[in-house]
Design a protein around this nucleic acid. Structure first.
Lengths: 234, 234
DNA sequence: CGTGATCTTGATGCTCATCAAGGCTAGTGG
DNA sequence: CCACTAGCCTTGATGAGCATCAAGATCACG
């Protein structure tokens, strides 16, 4: 008999992915079946792996990032379970890619993408994938707002609320609590700040009882206060 | 007899748009015909107009931007002739939209977008539109790099080279020369800087003979120097 | 010829980067 | 079991980059 792990893990992925798709569009029975099939056998990768895709992340965190000529790194977006990515088509230059920030599991999205434009029956699937792309563009715009218009203090608050919202939709966060596996260096690379300044800014947020960090989990005692201070809109 | 203006303007738009599509994908005769038809009668709008779309810009400049709660403005991207936009579907919040920075002319993109998914024959058109979307995502990523990883000096150089490249592809710029109708305030809103600092930084670029601005035209005596200073890759 | 938009300049100080060093924790090998 | 190492977090000192405020200059246009 197979171990619990082999049986339960894949089905959890499948459930998460199914919920994600249901959240984005109305799927037919047949489409739901396709999604579950695709999600049944995730592939594991370790922290630091370069992910290729097109795939769906089913567990762990990753990011889209560029490495710049001077050796620095700019993170464009964080990827959490349920997110679609394509490390190859990652637009433009060579030095861009998708990077695993924790151990991750992925499934190939090819079957789903092909189902969309081969047959013309899978409107729900097509809608869901279109909705994912639209949402990822919105996330890029939000990130531009953070970098272009917010202070360090506001950037951190805004990013954390952004992540909380996305994680809550797939059942991995609630109003006051979210996983936070990102190092301060990673936050710095995303937010266009130095590590030192991220550290000090986080301390300020803690002092003001807006966020607590312990063991890879962030607690938000006052999410509305956080949202007000950075102009975050749900 | 109709005036020169009525006859020539539309055909110029059509030609520019046709060139733009040809640059992005290989089109059949029939597809080229569709594009020319769509581009034959542009609609004019004045500076400051809110553009709805889905449309193609055929002349003038526009931008995608958000208005923030505190009254400030963040520009996400500049749109130049040949660019596709959709002011309605502009992802997320209400306060986002497409804004005409100069007098503009647009054509509706609906006929082309519908041709793509109604019939399944127009692979070239579908490819071209997909390529436009991919390119616009690349432009957003480049903008994130500017805001997150570059100094004011580098941001300006990088943005100008970015615009030059895009304008050159549609025949509106060459290596040493591009139209530059943007005010310093507009540049500031795009680059996350104050107007005052944009002004001083432009002066520095002028002092170092990297850029000259006169009458809405930018001259770049040393494009390679500019590219080196900001890590711009063609 | 006046009026509003745009560009320019100077003065001042806050935000944030940088440099340098020390501490904490978890994992590793002797 | 303990020294050792490698990440990661933290702290202090210093200064650069850029914002802000205020005012004047220039330009475009009716």
């Amino acid at each position: 008999m197979l171990s619990d792990r082999t049986i339960i893990r894949p089905s959890r992925s499948a459930e998460l992915i199914a919920r994600r798709f249901a959240d984005l569009a109305v799927l037919t029975e047949r489409e739901q079946e396709l999604v579950r099939m695709a999600a049944s056998r995730p592939e594991a990768q370790t922290t630091g792996a370069e992910l290729s895709g097109p795939s769906l992340l089913t567990s762990g965190w990753a990011c889209r990032r560029a490495r710049l000529a001077d050796g620095s790194r700019q993170i464009f977006a964080f990827l959490v379970p349920g997110d679609l990515f394509d490390g190859r088509r990652l637009t433009g230059r060579a030095r861009n890619g998708v990077f695993a920030l924790t151990p991750v599991e992925t499934i190939s999205a090819s079957p789903l993408l092909e189902a969309v434009d081969d047959v013309d029956l899978h409107h729900g699937l097509a809608d869901a994938i279109e909705a994912m792309r639209t949402e990822q563009e919105k996330l890029l715009l939000d990130h531009i707002v953070r970098l272009g218009s917010l202070t360090a203090y506001e950037r951190l608050a805004h990013l954390i609320l952004d992540l909380r919202e996305r994680l809550a939709r797939i059942g991995l966060a609630d109003e006051h609590r979210l996983p936070m596996p990102l190092t301060q260096e990673t936050l710095a690379d995303a937010l266009g700040l130095s590590v030192v300044h991220v550290n000090r800014t986080l301390q300020q947020l803690r002092r003001e009882r807006l966020i607590e960090l312990r063991g890879g989990v962030a607690m938000l005692p006052d999410p509305n206060g956080l949202a007000d201070l950075c102009g975050f809109e749900t």
